[in-house]
Amino acid sequence: MTDILEITDLEVTYQRSILALHGVNLRVAKGQITSLLGANGAGKSTTLRAISGFIGLDNARVNAGRVRFLGEDITGLQLPRTIHKGIVLVPERDKVFTNLTVAENLEVVATSREEGSKWQQIEEEIFVYFPRLAKLRNKPAGLLSGGERQMLAIGGALVCRPQLLLIDELSLGLAPVIVDEIIERLREVHAKTELSMLLVEQSAAVAFALASYGFVLENGKVELEGATEDLRSNQKVLDLYLGTGSTGRADYLANARRRFEERANV
Protein backbone atom coordinates (compact mmCIF):
# COMPACT_ATOMS: atom_id res chain seq x y z
CA MET A 1 0.00 0.00 0.00
CA THR A 2 1.38 3.41 -0.91
CA ASP A 3 1.48 6.32 1.45
CA ILE A 4 -0.16 9.55 0.34
CA LEU A 5 1.51 11.49 3.16
CA GLU A 6 4.79 10.79 4.85
CA ILE A 7 6.22 12.87 7.67
CA THR A 8 9.74 12.29 8.91
CA ASP A 9 11.38 13.84 11.99
CA LEU A 10 9.19 16.93 11.84
CA GLU A 11 10.15 19.74 14.21
CA VAL A 12 8.08 22.90 14.53
CA THR A 13 8.76 25.99 16.61
CA TYR A 14 6.44 28.85 17.45
CA GLN A 15 7.81 32.37 17.69
CA ARG A 16 11.30 31.08 16.92
CA SER A 17 11.73 29.52 20.33
CA ILE A 18 8.85 27.40 21.57
CA LEU A 19 9.33 23.87 20.33
CA ALA A 20 5.94 22.29 19.66
CA LEU A 21 6.96 19.13 17.80
CA HIS A 22 10.16 17.21 18.49
CA GLY A 23 10.62 14.89 15.56
CA VAL A 24 7.22 13.51 14.57
CA ASN A 25 7.09 10.53 12.23
CA LEU A 26 3.82 9.47 10.70
CA ARG A 27 2.29 8.18 7.49
CA VAL A 28 -1.15 8.23 5.96
CA ALA A 29 -1.89 5.35 3.62
CA LYS A 30 -3.68 6.19 0.37
CA GLY A 31 -7.41 5.62 0.56
CA GLN A 32 -7.32 4.94 4.31
CA ILE A 33 -8.43 6.79 7.39
CA THR A 34 -5.60 7.33 9.86
CA SER A 35 -6.04 8.68 13.36
CA LEU A 36 -3.77 10.82 15.45
CA LEU A 37 -4.55 10.56 19.15
CA GLY A 38 -3.24 12.75 21.89
CA ALA A 39 -4.11 14.85 24.90
CA ASN A 40 -4.35 18.63 24.96
CA GLY A 41 -1.08 20.24 23.97
CA ALA A 42 0.45 17.06 22.61
CA GLY A 43 1.04 18.76 19.26
CA LYS A 44 -1.82 17.32 17.21
CA SER A 45 -3.12 20.59 15.82
CA THR A 46 0.41 21.79 15.14
CA THR A 47 1.07 18.65 13.14
CA LEU A 48 -2.03 19.25 11.05
CA ARG A 49 -1.21 22.92 10.53
CA ALA A 50 2.33 22.02 9.51
CA ILE A 51 0.91 19.74 6.82
CA SER A 52 -1.80 22.10 5.60
CA GLY A 53 0.51 25.10 5.64
CA PHE A 54 1.02 27.86 8.14
CA ILE A 55 0.23 31.45 7.35
CA GLY A 56 2.25 34.48 8.38
CA LEU A 57 -0.03 35.14 11.34
CA ASP A 58 0.89 31.85 13.00
CA ASN A 59 4.51 32.84 13.50
CA ALA A 60 5.38 29.17 13.25
CA ARG A 61 8.15 27.47 11.32
CA VAL A 62 9.16 23.98 10.34
CA ASN A 63 12.66 23.67 11.77
CA ALA A 64 13.63 20.24 10.66
CA GLY A 65 12.17 17.18 9.03
CA ARG A 66 10.31 16.50 5.82
CA VAL A 67 6.68 16.41 4.75
CA ARG A 68 6.12 14.44 1.56
CA PHE A 69 2.77 14.39 -0.19
CA LEU A 70 2.24 12.03 -3.13
CA GLY A 71 5.99 11.58 -3.25
CA GLU A 72 6.61 15.32 -3.55
CA ASP A 73 8.41 17.34 -0.89
CA ILE A 74 5.96 19.96 0.41
CA THR A 75 7.80 20.92 3.61
CA GLY A 76 7.02 24.50 4.57
CA LEU A 77 4.64 25.01 1.64
CA GLN A 78 2.19 27.77 2.57
CA LEU A 79 -1.48 28.34 2.04
CA PRO A 80 -3.14 28.48 -0.44
CA ARG A 81 -0.66 26.35 -2.41
CA THR A 82 -1.25 23.32 -0.22
CA ILE A 83 -4.95 23.53 -1.16
CA HIS A 84 -4.00 23.45 -4.83
CA LYS A 85 -2.02 20.29 -4.11
CA GLY A 86 -5.18 18.75 -2.61
CA ILE A 87 -4.64 19.03 1.14
CA VAL A 88 -7.64 20.50 2.94
CA LEU A 89 -8.04 21.08 6.66
CA VAL A 90 -11.19 21.17 8.77
CA PRO A 91 -9.99 23.35 11.65
CA GLU A 92 -10.85 22.81 15.28
CA ARG A 93 -12.44 26.18 15.94
CA ASP A 94 -14.10 28.87 13.81
CA LYS A 95 -14.75 26.32 11.13
CA VAL A 96 -17.61 28.06 9.30
CA PHE A 97 -18.24 31.60 8.07
CA THR A 98 -20.93 32.62 10.55
CA ASN A 99 -22.17 35.59 8.50
CA LEU A 100 -22.77 33.48 5.39
CA THR A 101 -25.64 31.08 4.79
CA VAL A 102 -25.07 27.34 4.61
CA ALA A 103 -25.24 27.35 0.80
CA GLU A 104 -22.89 30.34 0.62
CA ASN A 105 -20.45 28.60 2.96
CA LEU A 106 -20.19 25.81 0.42
CA GLU A 107 -20.15 28.08 -2.60
CA VAL A 108 -17.59 30.52 -1.30
CA VAL A 109 -14.81 27.95 -1.47
CA ALA A 110 -15.52 26.62 -4.93
CA THR A 111 -12.98 27.53 -7.55
CA SER A 112 -14.06 29.54 -10.56
CA ARG A 113 -13.91 26.43 -12.72
CA GLU A 114 -17.02 25.11 -11.07
CA GLU A 115 -19.66 27.61 -12.11
CA GLY A 116 -23.21 26.92 -13.15
CA SER A 117 -24.61 23.44 -13.47
CA LYS A 118 -21.44 21.70 -12.37
CA TRP A 119 -21.56 23.72 -9.19
CA GLN A 120 -25.18 22.65 -8.56
CA GLN A 121 -24.06 19.08 -8.89
CA ILE A 122 -21.30 19.52 -6.31
CA GLU A 123 -23.68 21.21 -3.91
CA GLU A 124 -26.22 18.41 -4.28
CA GLU A 125 -23.47 15.88 -3.65
CA ILE A 126 -22.69 17.51 -0.31
CA PHE A 127 -26.37 17.63 0.58
CA VAL A 128 -26.64 13.91 -0.16
CA TYR A 129 -23.88 13.22 2.36
CA PHE A 130 -25.36 15.63 4.90
CA PRO A 131 -29.15 15.78 4.32
CA ARG A 132 -29.52 17.87 7.43
CA LEU A 133 -27.68 20.72 5.72
CA ALA A 134 -30.05 20.72 2.76
CA LYS A 135 -32.89 21.83 5.01
CA LEU A 136 -30.73 24.61 6.44
CA ARG A 137 -29.33 25.88 3.18
CA ASN A 138 -30.59 29.46 3.53
CA LYS A 139 -29.89 29.79 7.23
CA PRO A 140 -26.87 31.82 8.41
CA ALA A 141 -24.18 29.44 9.59
CA GLY A 142 -23.88 31.42 12.83
CA LEU A 143 -27.22 29.99 13.89
CA LEU A 144 -26.22 26.35 13.43
CA SER A 145 -25.56 23.95 16.27
CA GLY A 146 -22.09 22.56 16.88
CA GLY A 147 -22.85 19.33 15.05
CA GLU A 148 -24.33 21.12 12.06
CA ARG A 149 -21.31 23.37 11.94
CA GLN A 150 -19.02 20.36 11.90
CA MET A 151 -21.00 18.84 9.02
CA LEU A 152 -20.91 22.15 7.14
CA ALA A 153 -17.17 22.44 7.74
CA ILE A 154 -16.59 18.95 6.38
CA GLY A 155 -18.89 19.73 3.45
CA GLY A 156 -16.99 22.94 2.73
CA ALA A 157 -13.72 21.05 2.81
CA LEU A 158 -15.08 18.39 0.45
CA VAL A 159 -16.08 21.09 -2.05
CA CYS A 160 -12.37 21.92 -2.30
CA ARG A 161 -11.90 18.46 -3.87
CA PRO A 162 -9.24 17.23 -1.45
CA GLN A 163 -6.99 14.26 -1.99
CA LEU A 164 -6.18 14.30 1.69
CA LEU A 165 -8.67 15.55 4.25
CA LEU A 166 -7.31 16.63 7.63
CA ILE A 167 -9.87 16.89 10.43
CA ASP A 168 -8.93 18.58 13.68
CA GLU A 169 -10.97 17.36 16.65
CA LEU A 170 -13.93 15.74 14.97
CA SER A 171 -15.89 15.07 18.15
CA LEU A 172 -14.80 17.86 20.49
CA GLY A 173 -17.73 19.50 22.25
CA LEU A 174 -20.39 17.50 20.41
CA ALA A 175 -23.16 15.33 21.84
CA PRO A 176 -22.50 11.58 21.44
CA VAL A 177 -25.55 11.07 19.24
CA ILE A 178 -24.30 13.80 16.85
CA VAL A 179 -20.81 12.30 16.87
CA ASP A 180 -22.32 8.95 15.84
CA GLU A 181 -24.16 10.62 12.99
CA ILE A 182 -21.04 12.38 11.76
CA ILE A 183 -19.02 9.18 11.98
CA GLU A 184 -21.69 7.45 9.92
CA ARG A 185 -21.59 10.23 7.30
CA LEU A 186 -17.82 10.16 7.09
CA ARG A 187 -17.91 6.39 6.60
CA GLU A 188 -20.29 6.93 3.71
CA VAL A 189 -18.03 9.58 2.18
CA HIS A 190 -15.07 7.27 2.57
CA ALA A 191 -16.89 4.27 1.13
CA LYS A 192 -17.92 6.27 -1.92
CA THR A 193 -14.76 8.26 -2.62
CA GLU A 194 -11.94 6.36 -0.88
CA LEU A 195 -10.70 9.72 0.29
CA SER A 196 -7.56 9.56 2.44
CA MET A 197 -8.08 11.18 5.82
CA LEU A 198 -6.02 12.09 8.84
CA LEU A 199 -8.19 12.44 11.89
CA VAL A 200 -7.01 14.20 15.02
CA GLU A 201 -8.87 13.14 18.13
CA GLN A 202 -8.82 13.20 21.87
CA SER A 203 -11.38 10.44 22.02
CA ALA A 204 -9.97 7.02 21.19
CA ALA A 205 -13.47 5.65 20.76
CA VAL A 206 -14.15 8.02 17.86
CA ALA A 207 -10.71 7.51 16.33
CA PHE A 208 -11.04 3.72 16.46
CA ALA A 209 -14.55 3.82 15.04
CA LEU A 210 -13.29 5.42 11.85
CA ALA A 211 -9.61 4.77 11.39
CA SER A 212 -7.82 1.65 10.33
CA TYR A 213 -4.43 2.78 11.59
CA GLY A 214 -3.44 5.14 14.37
CA PHE A 215 -0.64 7.15 15.91
CA VAL A 216 -0.45 8.33 19.52
CA LEU A 217 1.20 11.68 20.06
CA GLU A 218 2.58 12.78 23.40
CA ASN A 219 4.60 15.90 24.17
CA GLY A 220 5.37 16.54 20.54
CA LYS A 221 6.48 13.00 19.73
CA VAL A 222 4.83 9.87 18.38
CA GLU A 223 4.85 7.44 21.30
CA LEU A 224 2.96 4.61 19.72
CA GLU A 225 1.56 3.50 16.39
CA GLY A 226 -0.27 0.54 15.01
CA ALA A 227 -3.33 -0.87 13.38
CA THR A 228 -6.54 0.05 15.16
CA GLU A 229 -7.07 -3.51 16.44
CA ASP A 230 -3.62 -3.51 18.02
CA LEU A 231 -4.07 -0.10 19.57
CA ARG A 232 -7.46 -1.08 20.88
CA SER A 233 -5.90 -3.81 22.98
CA ASN A 234 -2.82 -1.83 24.01
CA GLN A 235 -2.81 -1.31 27.77
CA LYS A 236 -1.37 2.17 27.62
CA VAL A 237 -3.97 3.40 25.15
CA LEU A 238 -6.68 1.80 27.24
CA ASP A 239 -5.44 3.61 30.31
CA LEU A 240 -5.01 7.01 28.78
CA TYR A 241 -7.70 7.36 26.17
CA LEU A 242 -10.47 4.96 26.97
CA GLY A 243 -10.41 5.48 30.72
CA THR A 244 -10.76 1.77 31.40
CA GLY A 245 -7.58 1.28 33.39
CA SER A 246 -7.57 2.86 36.83
CA THR A 247 -3.92 2.71 37.77
CA GLY A 248 -2.62 4.03 34.51
CA ARG A 249 -4.93 7.01 34.55
CA ALA A 250 -4.06 7.82 38.13
CA ASP A 251 -0.36 7.65 37.25
CA TYR A 252 -0.90 9.85 34.27
CA LEU A 253 -2.80 12.43 36.25
CA ALA A 254 -0.17 12.45 38.99
CA ASN A 255 2.51 12.98 36.35
CA ALA A 256 0.55 15.75 34.73
CA ARG A 257 0.05 17.49 38.03
CA ARG A 258 3.73 17.25 38.86
CA ARG A 259 4.68 18.70 35.49
CA PHE A 260 2.20 21.52 35.98
CA GLU A 261 3.55 22.37 39.40
CA GLU A 262 7.11 22.33 38.16
CA ARG A 263 6.15 24.77 35.46
CA ALA A 264 4.30 26.97 37.94
CA ASN A 265 7.38 27.12 40.15
CA VAL A 266 9.55 28.29 37.31
Binding site: I55, L79, P80, I83, L89, K95, T111, C160
Partner: peptide, 8 residues
Protein backbone atom coordinates in the same frame (compact mmCIF):
# COMPACT_ATOMS: atom_id res chain seq x y z
CA UNK B 1 -7.76 32.18 8.63
CA UNK B 2 -10.57 29.89 7.48
CA UNK B 3 -10.76 31.79 4.20
CA UNK B 4 -7.08 31.04 3.64
CA UNK B 5 -7.62 27.43 4.64
CA UNK B 6 -10.36 27.17 2.04
CA UNK B 7 -8.07 28.40 -0.69
CA UNK B 8 -9.38 31.97 -0.93
Amino acid sequence: LLAAQRGI
